[in-house]
């Protein structure tokens, strides 16, 4: 889901950059001292997740985990995802510096959004929590794909067909991510329920 350099038009690149910087600033401000190392760990998980490929028919797709990061970190997922993407661009050549802002928005905006949408469900034990986690994982992928498609269509409307294909291709990933998010969250809920309340920690 990383956009390469040289595809998007300048206004979209610039817009993405501005939104990414603002989001990162908000995220850093809300990140309190006790959660920094945990955030860095989740950032590492995101960094590595893109390397894990799930074979699917002729192609393979990789995990994104932005839903999981979103429900655990809330706004702090913007810097967490941003730094991971920066390192992926430098070390692996995924994406690139000019598209970094847009890529951050594509991955991190859905993370923040699902934390707002499903954050409350996750704090309630039982079935609702499981459902919330699944929905968060799946919705984050859906939103990311939609943002990606919008960025491409905004540059060149002939991308519409590609975007449609992309949406279909990502449907299985939505299910996979939803399921993984559900399992990881239910495990965390059993082992360390406090984690699920990170987000509700009093914020300024």
């Amino acid at each position: 889901m990383h956009l390469s350099e040289g595809i998007l038009s300048l206004p979209i690149l610039a817009g993405g950059g501005v939104v990414a910087v603002l989001g990162t600033a908000v995220g850093l401000k809300r990140l309190d001292y006790d959660h920094i190392i945990g955030t860095a760990m989740l950032s590492s998980a995101f960094f590595v997740a893109s390397l894990i490929h799930v074979p699917l028919g002729p192609a393979s797709i990789h995990l994104v985990l932005n839903g999981l990061i979103g429900i655990l970190l809330g706004w702090a997922s913007v810097p967490a995802i941003g730094i991971a993407l920066l390192l992926q661009a430098f070390l692996f050549g995924y994406g690139g510096l000019t598209v970094l802002g847009v890529n951050i928005v594509i991955m991190a905006a859905p993370a923040v959004l699902v934390s707002l949408l499903f954050g409350r469900m996750i704090k309630k034990p039982g079935k609702q929590q499981m459902l919330g986690a699944f929905l968060a994982g799946a919705t984050a992928i859906l939103l990311s794909t939609i943002l990606l498609a919008l960025a491409m269509i905004g540059t060149d409307s002939s991308f519409i067909d590609t975007a449609r294909l992309l949406l279909i291709a990502q449907l299985p990933l939505m299910l996979i991510e939803g399921t993984i998010t559900m399992f990881v969250l239910s495990f965390l809920a059993r082992v360390q329920p406090e984690l699920l309340h990170l987000n509700s920690a009093p914020t300024p």
Binding site: A45, S50, I52, P55, L188
Partner: peptide, 23 residues
């Protein structure tokens, strides 16, 4: 806890690592 949860997942899925794409 994060380390204990995610690390095993990553280690189990690790063998799939070299199958990279998206560049």
């Amino acid at each position: 806890v994060i380390l204990r949860t995610l690390l095993p997942v990553l280690l189990i899925l690790g063998p799939a690592l070299p199958a990279l794409a998206h560049r």
